[in-house]
């Protein structure tokens, strides 16, 4: 019995530790970024485009815009592909088709970020530079927001597909059959019943994918170009927040304010991801509950 009690308290402790980790990260990042927050107003940090660490000017606007561009592009590309793949897998596919598709998605999901980066550098960047961009601009190195968006889009496909499949599976079979029995085709059933029923779940899954895309670092860093400035088109280079942190973290130790600014960048990332995750997870949990 004593062993039982002891084990129980150890396990409770570990549980609380895991929950507290979220809080610890938030507090730690906040404390570290407080010097720059005392120095500058939050608004000027977020809206200024001046980035001169040596002079103590930290405007995050170009990086925020870069993150938004890349993320939006990635989701815009991944969303339709993932949605239709997931619909096919849940509503149409026979099990022998699934046997081929699931391992393929597994592989996509399992490949490390840096591998996608290599692929982007070897395949996507030259393609943009030689084939795609010449139609629109005189010269592009290929290291662009578009390249980052494509690579990132591919990386979120497996996540989106698996979330969508989970969401669609929460719709009871009888509901589909009720629609089919009235003479609806599969597609009519899918978009008028299944999609309608799971609209919130689809939205939640997308938000989750957005938050994943925003934090992705290495692959984006390798293909985005990393030029500070506000991009005018998707054929301009961009500089998302994670790339900023990764590129500059080593060299800033001598300047406390610079370090603080980078920690503030991490805090922004963490805060946005936290809010998006909480929102979408809570919606998805609800959906799961109604299913049971």
């Amino acid at each position: 019995m004593v062993k039982d009690k002891l084990a129980q308290s150890v396990m409770l402790g570990l549980c609380l530790f895991s929950i507290l980790m979220v809080v610890t990260i938030a507090v730690g990042l906040y404390l570290k970024s407080s010097p720059v927050l005392e120095n500058k107003s939050l608004w000027s940090l977020l809206s200024s485009s001046e980035w001169r660490p040596m002079k103590g000017e930290f405007g995050f606007f170009p990086f925020i815009i870069g993150t938004v561009w890349v993320t939006v592009l990635a989701i815009a590309m991944a969303f339709p592909i993932s949605l239709f793949t997931a619909i096919y897998l849940t509503e149409y596919a026979k099990s022998h088709v699934k046997k081929f598709v699931f391992p393929a998605l597994d592989i996509l999901a399992g490949l490390p970020s840096v591998i996608y980066g290599v692929w982007g550098v070897l395949v996507i960047v030259p393609w943009i530079s030689n084939r795609f961009a010449p139609h629109f601009v005189d010269f592009s190195s290929g290291y662009t927001i578009l390249a980052a968006g494509i690579v990132l889009g591919i990386m979120v496909i497996p996540l989106l597909v698996s979330l969508f499949i989970e969401v669609f599976s929460s719709v009871p079979m009888e509901l589909r059959e009720a629609s089919l029995a009235l003479g609806a085709t599969r597609w009519q059933t899918t978009h008028k019943v299944v999609l309608r029923k799971t609209l919130s779940g689809v939205a939640a899954a997308t938000v989750l994918a957005v938050s994943r895309a925003m934090g992705e670092t290495i692959a984006v860093l390798m293909v985005c170009g990393c030029v500070i400035g506000i991009p005018k088109s998707i054929l301009d280079p961009g500089y998302p927040i994670p790339a900023l942190i990764a590129n500059n973290y080593g060299e800033m130790l001598s300047m406390p304010l610079y370090e603080s600014a980078l920690m503030f960048a991490a805090l922004i990332l963490f805060a946005v991801v936290l809010v998006f995750n909480l929102l979408s997870r809570i919606i998805l949990y609800r959906l799961e509950k109604t299913q049971q």
């Binding site: 009888e174 509901l175 059959e177 009720a178 029995a181 003479g183 609806a184 019943v193 309608r196």
Partner: peptide, 20 residues
């Protein structure tokens, strides 16, 4: 098949109103 199903109504075990 869709025409066949239109011609044959179905009332299932558990009532399942569509989400509308």
């Amino acid at each position: 098949i869709t025409e066949l199903r239109r011609k044959i109504g179905l009332v299932s075990q558990r009532p399942c109103p569509l989400p509308m």
